[in-house]
Amino acid sequence: MVKADNNQIARSSPFKAWAINHIRTLIASLGAMTRQPASSFMTVAVIAIALALPAGLFVLLNNASNISIGWDNSAQISVFLKADTSEKQAQKLMGKLRLYDDVAQISLINKKQALKEFKKISGFGDAIEALGDNPLPHVLTIQPVIDANRPDKIHHLIKQLNQQKQVELAQLDLQWVKRLFAMLEIAQRAIWVVASLLGIAVLLVVGNTIRLDIQNRREEIEVTKLIGGTDAFIRRPFLYTGLWYGISGGISAWLLTALSISLLDNSVEHLASLYNSGFQLKGLSFSEGINLIGFSCFLGLSGSWIAVGRHLSEIEPS
């Protein structure tokens, strides 16, 4: 035995001691979890399911928006020209409009052609002939450039078209697109609500697990305090346990989402092929997955932080 004053010699530097302690606790808390595989598995599973649900909904919503963007391309603006516009003027206008940035494609349906088609399709051939004059105007059909981020651009284009001298009316039936977007927005908000509620659930699950852990290790906490463990030292294993729950819960949630998507993918592909579409379900992207894990870590850490803050100070040696 040497006197107490020689203690410092074999001690690591404060920073090194701190780092050693952190790494030691990180590994030890993982070890403690694996020593209780059943209860750890259940906690992780609850976190995984709670997070996979909103993540899965998010994926479906993303796919739905992708489809709707595809449909947007079929949106057409019909430009009815004034009745007294000659075919030559119509051609000239078409040439001018073709140069617009927002116009992807433009074509002219001249009135003779339109009348012929109308007779054929409508079956009112005789009645129309009786009219003598061709009542139909020239029509320009325009496929606008779709910018999903700026739906107002189309409106701007329509406004521009309506200001043209020869244009009687330019119109786009965007109503269904608007409705779809509105529905998607509601769905998005619903997912956020669900995600928030389930996030709180994860917080409580982790908090409760850590609280039980603290109670089970009451003796250890008392002894550690008695032999000079700081509050930070005692807090650390519980926080790391929460972090591990978060990490493993997040990874499991990602896997669960990927698994569900792959289960759906075949049927969706089949359905899409019936519509002559090459549409495929897209799972979480890498960065979205990382975000999911990060969010899960945050919840795990906060849950344990709350539990530790509330219950650790209650335990004092006596």
Binding site: R11, P14, A17, W18, R24, E220, T224, I227, G228
Partner: peptide, 29 residues
Amino acid sequence: IVFQNHHLLYDRTVFDNVSLPLIIAGYQH
């Protein structure tokens, strides 16, 4: 501090019990 009822931690070995003060102080392995 030595206690009448030892205050040992029964979920770990003798070695781990005795090493606790050193771990707290951050000694090397």
